[in-house]
Computed example of a mutant assay.
Amino acid sequence: MKRFLMLLAAIAVALAAYAQQGKYYVDGREVTAEEFRTLPMNRVAKMDVAEEGGTKVFRVTLKPEVQPAARERKEARKEGDASEPAAKRQPGELDLTGDTDLPFEERLARAIRKVYDETTLLKEGDRAADFTAACYAGGEVSLADHRGKVVLLTFWATWCGPCLKELAPEALPAEVLDRFRDRADFLFLPVAYTDTPQSLDKFFASEKGTAYAYLKELAAMDPDKTIHGLYATQSIPRSFVIGRDGTIVYGSLGAAAGEAERIAEAIAAALEAE
């Protein structure tokens, strides 16, 4: 289920981020950028992204259309026939079917925020849970040892597409880490969710992983999800900006457009606070 939710989130983020450029194919048929942007998320079964001749090419495979009999049952439920109740949305499930009159980006942001509210255990104003974790580069890191600093705690995983989008060199590193690189009172603490030394070895040795080599010296590990479980029930990428006194001042879920900038502003405000 979690992998499915991450796939759905990845598709939603990609649709929003790239629908201004490239070529788009749905079930083998080339479509316009606008048609691509307005695809119903609940119909998307798979999306592949490739670069061909310097152009991004997006290929989407849709789920089979609802058969007539199933459609009739669906319409009956709309008209008040309760003989076959509709499937309920599960807590933490990304839902983009509502507010269809709103722009896609706003629907996505609202859906992600709803998942955040449902799955986050510690939110703004709460005391950050202390933990000690093994570091990929060796040794251990304890959150309590960095009290007095502003900490950006980010949960990510090597298998998580939205995580890698958020942590790509041109994203969070360029927009956040470079800005505070010279601040001794700031710490970036990326915690690898479900990853082990072996999975991280494999990732960093891969062609894809070379772009994330900066994480080798920074990453702590949470192979059994114990640390993440102190903060949330599910879903990554997930970040918390923690103030000098150990209080969470900002929480973030997903890699939506503009999120890195909002994280940076929260860090700047926390650094300026007494």
Rank of each mutant, 00 (worst) to 15 (best):
E51K: 08
V249L: 03
E261N: 11
R3Q: 15
A264V: 04
D178T: 10
D27I: 14
V150T: 05
G98K: 13
L102F: 11
I227C: 04
D178H: 11
G138T: 05
T61L: 13
E79N: 08
V13A: 15
P237L: 02
A174T: 06
P91A: 08
I227R: 01
A17V: 02
A33N: 06
A111S: 03
T55V: 15
E272Y: 00
A50L: 07
Y250N: 09
E75L: 15
S239C: 03
V191L: 15
K208S: 03
T226Q: 13
L200H: 13
R59K: 10
K2Q: 14
E259Y: 11
G139S: 14
V66H: 00
G254S: 12
T132Y: 00
L108M: 01
E30S: 09
K208R: 08
R127G: 02
G28W: 01
F186E: 06
L215R: 14
K78Y: 12
R262D: 10
D95A: 02
C135Q: 12
E207A: 13
V57Q: 02
L177T: 12
A19Y: 12
K202C: 11
P190M: 07
Q20A: 06
V26S: 04
V49R: 11
K74D: 12
D222W: 08
P91K: 03
D222M: 05
A144N: 05
P162L: 01
L8K: 15
G125K: 06
V66P: 03
L153Q: 04
P68C: 03
R73S: 14
E140W: 05
R37A: 15
A213Q: 08
G125D: 05
E106H: 03
A137I: 14
Q21G: 09
L230C: 05
V176T: 03
P162D: 11
R127Y: 05
V191K: 05
A50V: 13
K2W: 11
C160G: 01
C135F: 09
K202H: 12
E124H: 03
L189N: 01
K216W: 09
A134K: 15
P103E: 00
P162E: 12
P169L: 02
R262G: 04
A255G: 07
E51L: 13
Q198P: 07
E259Q: 13
I248P: 00
D222F: 02
Y193E: 00
T132S: 04
G125V: 09
K225D: 14
G246A: 02
F204Y: 04
F240G: 02
G161F: 02
P169E: 06
R73V: 14
R77A: 08
R29Q: 14
A270S: 09
A86S: 15
E106T: 08
Y136V: 11
P197D: 00
Y136F: 06
L187Y: 10
T194W: 15
A184R: 14
Q234I: 02
L164Q: 07
A129H: 04
I236N: 01
T194E: 15
D95I: 00
D182T: 12
K202Y: 12
R29M: 10
P197L: 08
L62H: 09
D245Q: 03
L153E: 02
G125Q: 06
I112P: 01
E265L: 13
D182I: 08
D195V: 04
E207M: 03
P173K: 05
T61Y: 09
R262S: 08
F240Q: 04
E261Y: 10
F104R: 03
L7Q: 12
